[in-house]
């Protein structure tokens, strides 16, 4: 009896964390090439150019989770890194869009763009290149 209650609790907690931390995928234009996790980190931390990274709103749940999983860094660290890039005239931080629908729209329209959205939000307008965990 006790064991099953514990099991139920564990499942409830797992379910709760699952809802809180939904799977995120990195997406590109259907016409674009594949991209590795290292390349994603380089791109979103401003180490390399070429492609156009697209961001979600700074501090939003998906933003926090993406940077943790893709770069191992929290919001303040990311801000510090981009402050250095910005205030040395090397570039502007990725453009932030309000939600995953807007990110998909931007990616579908630009073969050089890279973005991230919830796995559940994926549709045929974009191509998944990397699941994050």
């Amino acid at each position: 009896m006790k064991a099953s209650a514990l099991c139920a609790l564990v499942f409830a907690v797992l379910a709760a964390t699952n809802i809180q931390a939904e799977d995120i995928v990195v997406i590109v234009n259907p016409a674009a090439k594949a991209i590795s996790k290292d390349q994603i980190a380089d791109l979103y931390l401003g180490r390399s150019g070429g492609l156009t990274p697209i961001d979600q709103t700074a501090g939003s749940a998906i933003y926090v989770q993406f940077y943790k999983q893709a770069t191992g860094r929290d919001v303040a660290q990311v801000k510090a890194i981009w402050s250095r890039i910005l205030f040395t005239g090397r570039g502007l931080p990725p453009k932030q869009l309000p939600d995953s629908a807007a990110v998909k729209q931007a990616i579908a329209a630009n073969p050089n763009a890279v973005g991230y959205i919830e796995k559940s939000a994926v549709d045929a307008s974009v191509k998944v290149v990397l699941p994050l965990d």
Partner: peptide
């Protein structure tokens, strides 16, 4: 040296 006065960075 390129960001020496940007304390936040």
């Amino acid at each position: 040296s390129d960001s020496q006065n940007v304390g936040y960075a």
